[in-house]
Nucleic acid binder design. Structure first.
Lengths: 220, 220
DNA sequence: GTTGTTTTGTATCGAACGGTATGAATCTAT
DNA sequence: ATAGATTCATACCGTTCGATACAAAACAAC
């Protein structure tokens, strides 16, 4: 789910010629005492549970097992760290969203989206809820950029679902009588709603039960 | 929507006999230079937009038009102020939820809930989204109490809807084949989902359109 | 006018925030 | 071994956080 281009050095074409960007990690100097990938995973857990504003640098460095200078040297700052976490979230725990769009029919896409979401939200390895929904839903002025980018992340996911339904109508497996826009927004609503249900403490079984109800009401 | 007992002095029965609590404002001393009700309204707008953690005391006092000592003397502290705001939210902008339960049938209740929610979320007088969903969805350790009480607020609303559907089954206007638990959770999901849709920037018309779609799929 | 009570404005508290300067430590290359 | 490069650990920066101490100001009662 590569919805955002996070590396400004690449996206803005600042670097001339074909200068390589970190082609391989530097072979000189003291090696890192930690695995940046593992550290990023830990950071994701913290942001997932406490949100962008609620996660302090002390929370982050403690969970990541590194100290502040290492964090800043490796990830930039708190905001850049969060954006890298968001990207990781889209490719990892939320990667099922784009995968589900490969299902054969609109109906199958929706079933896969709902069932995968419930599986993800019910996984006790993660904090409750959806990181993209809850970690920067509303915040103070300083975190406005993070809020906007997290919202753009959600909107991009909904747009992908919408485009898949448009294709489904061309393929003929989605009746032309239903609006692809309404349907995409409706499905996104269900996913968002499940996220809040999870945050409310709904059990895995309860969520499984409610999406079966929702699927039964689908008119196609 | 009096879902929470916010005044601990009352709920815990600390005060002996029938000692009155602020029966009438004191007639001696310098009078307040502001209207606490108006100030609370302003505070609600701030928490609604920035969330509990994102709203600083400077944000609050500036919008409320008072200074810090006045805020603390009148509302206790930041947490108590938020809880009073949450109570006000339940009785004001979100008061339609309990009102909707007075509709004659389960179907009418759902229609009223969805349409009233869209009207509330589409009102440009308020910040986007639902205060009870977004203002303390996840946060740091210090705000854990606020998070729990906000979650309890949401869960209480869902429970009220559930109990209304149970009654509807006794009344016979909701088929016994549908689970009242599933249906209440489903409707709450739609309301939560609408809140996130609103935060995502969905227009009033888009939300109106998607709930009409959702209502069309209802099997009763 | 004096006293007693409450509110307001200012100035500030200790703690925590995000972020960094600095030097010791640890590696490769020669 | 030495030099060069990078990372790590400590200690600290300025700012902002929520919360208050204190005294002047504004009222009612007498």
């Amino acid at each position: 789910m590569n919805l955002l281009t996070l590396d400004k050095r690449v996206s803005m074409n600042i670097i001339p010629f074909s200068m390589k960007i970190n082609p391989t990690p530097p072979c000189v100097g003291r090696p890192k005492g930690f695995d940046p990938d593992e550290a990023l995973e830990k950071a994701m857990q913290v942001f997932w549970q406490k949100g962008y504003e609620g996660a302090s640098l002390s929370d982050l460095t403690e969970s990541m097992g590194i100290n502040r200078p290492s964090l800043y040297a490796t990830f930039g700052n708190k905001e850049e760290l969060f954006l890298k976490v968001l990207n990781r979230y889209g490719e990892g725990p939320a990667g099922y969203v784009l995968e589900a769009l490969n299902e054969a029919t609109a109906r199958a896409v929706i079933e896969k989206l709902l069932r995968s979401t419930v599986e993800m939200l019910g996984d006790p390895k993660h904090p409750r809820g959806c990181l993209a929904v809850q970690s920067a839903l509303c915040c103070g002025d300083e975190a406005n950029d993070v809020q906007k980018k997290t919202r753009a992340f959600r909107v991009a996911g909904q747009k992908s679902i919408f485009e898949r339904f448009e294709r489904a109508q061309q393929d003929g497996d989605l009746p032309a009588s239903v609006s692809a826009d309404d349907l995409a927004r409706y499905v996104a609503m269900l996913l968002y709603g499940l996220s809040i249900q999870s945050a409310n403490g709904a059990t895995h079984e309860e969520m499984k039960s409610v999406i079966e109800f929702a699927l039964k009401t689908l008119p196609f």
